[in-house]
Design a binder for these strands. Structure first.
Length: 99
DNA sequence: CCTGAGCGG
């Protein structure tokens, strides 16, 4: 289970995310992908926590919260491995929460 | 490669 964190500031690091998400539970891993062409952060990250219950709390608490001067969007992340024979379909629209 | 899309190796 992983969490998608979007609309982040380019100044944020995985240490910052780890620190913030650690307040809601133990952070398993923090991933901060960057643009392959520009070698710069895309403004989103992925956080994996030990307990999915804590992930839900973190999502509820941090989604739509203002952080680093940006309103970050936290949501349940898609499975990165969407290859054939994997999750089997499920390529639906994960975008929820219209606020 | 210096920026604003939302989902990575």
């Amino acid at each position: 289970m992983s969490i998608y964190v979007g609309n982040l500031s380019y100044d944020v690091t995985r240490e910052d995310l780890e620190s913030v998400f650690n307040e809601y539970g133990r952070v398993n891993r923090v991933s901060l992908p960057m643009d392959r062409e520009a070698d710069r952060p895309r403004g989103f990250a992925f956080v994996e926590m030990a307990a999915k219950d804590d992930e839900a709390k973190a999502i509820e608490a941090l989604n739509g919260a203002e952080w680093m001067g940006r309103v970050m969007k936290v949501n349940e992340a898609r499975p990165r491995t969407a290859a054939a024979g994997g999750s089997g379909g499920g390529g639906g629209n994960y975008r929820r929460n219209s606020f």
